[in-house]
């Protein structure tokens, strides 16, 4: 069978991260097109029961590495577990979701296997026996088509780009793997997880993002952004200018020195559209801009723009959405 694919499925606190199921779904789509197989590896403690959801997304087989040592993430131990699953599956391609964990883990696996990582792919296409990853460089100002000169090819897939499938079997084959413990497995263990923004929607995984910029003129005015986001169940973002001014934390920054996002809907409030900001959000499917300056660069890429004062338009938009969506 040519080039079987293994997908690392991320779980935190016993819950699978959705972007991992997107990666399984994409792997399954490619495997069908090339006549190969898809398996998945899940690492953690008490994670056996999660195999059904992984099967539904399209994995034919799930390798479970269930060990109390892996209750919390440790890059080296997780990497060793995934490499063992790749060996068992004969996989020459590895997919991971480009989440914080995926982007941390992938290069350690690349180290163990003598390969490299194609990070944050937004498209994967078969070309003969090559699998080409299309990925943003310079935060999406350009896109590069990357192929591997050496096996395995390791690809991380950008969240919220590949559709999640639910057509697979809820009873995939399951194989439990045991690993010999060694000190090197926990060179970089996570000791604790500290909540900084509990309950909020994560920016890079959100299907709707509401961002605001310096045009809101003071930190206290970001409440209107948050209220609009709450009605839509959206994540909140900010421009570099307001982060540099200390109005908002860096975790909210969208753009080349912040986060790159591709939601279905991106609403930019009083964001002028500096080139670094546009680089981080212009792959959003639908962009809405609200700005009082009709010449703001953001209007050039906005599918829908309203020229007007955010202080007037945003509360009106929040009210209208409340009225329309909750009836």
């Amino acid at each position: 069978m040519p080039d079987p694919i293994l997908v690392f499925v991320e779980q935190r606190d016993g819950k699978i991260k959705r972007p991992s199921l997107e990666a399984v779904s994409e792997a399954s789509r490619l495997a069908k097109a090339s006549g190969t197989s898809v398996s998945a590896a899940i690492v953690g403690s008490d994670v056996q029961a999660l195999a059904a959801d992984i099967g539904k997304a399209g994995a034919e087989k799930v390798y479970v590495i269930d060990d109390p040592r892996f209750k919390r993430y440790a890059a080296e131990g997780y990497a060793k577990a995934v490499v063992e699953a790749m060996r068992r599956a004969g996989a020459t391609r590895l997919f991971l979701a480009a989440t914080a964990m995926g982007k941390d883990l992938a290069p350690t696996i690349a180290g163990l296997t003598g390969s490299a990582v194609a990070t944050d792919c937004t498209e994967l296409k078969l070309d003969g026996d090559r699998l080409i990853g299309r990925r943003p460089v310079c935060a999406g100002k350009l896109f590069a088509d990357v192929a591997f000169k050496k096996s395995p090819g390791i690809y991380t897939l950008r969240p919220n780009v590949f559709p999640q499938s639910r057509d697979g079997s809820a009873t995939p084959a399951v194989e439990t793997l045991r690993l010999e413990a060694s000190d090197a497995d926990s060179r970089s263990p996570v000791k604790d997880v500290v909540a900084t923004a509990a309950g909020k929607v994560e920016l890079t995984e959100a299907s709707i993002v509401v961002s605001a910029g310096r045009g809101l003129s003071a930190p206290e005015h970001f409440k209107m952004r948050d209220e609009l986001a709450a009605v839509l169940g959206a994540a909140v973002g900010a421009s570099r200018a307001v982060v540099d001014a200390g109005w908002r934390p860096h975790a909210e920054q969208v753009g080349q020195t912040g986060k790159t996002v591709s939601p279905n809907l991106y609403i930019a409030i009083a964001v002028s559209g500096a080139i670094q900001h546009l680089a981080g959000m212009s792959s959003s499917k639908v962009i809405v801009a609200i700005n009082k300056d009709a010449d703001a660069p953001i209007f050039k890429i906005a599918n829908y723009g309203i020229v007007g004062d955010a202080f007037e338009v945003v509360p009106a938009l929040t009210e209208e959405l409340k009225r329309v969506l909750h009836h």
Partner: peptide, 23 residues
């Protein structure tokens, strides 16, 4: 380890459209 086969700018977005002014 890798080979870059092609590099290009992202496809252009459709031209911006103004829905209207104010609330």
């Amino acid at each position: 380890r890798i080979e870059i086969l092609k590099m290009e700018p992202p496809p252009p977005r459709p031209p911006g459209r103004i829905v209207g002014k104010g609330r």
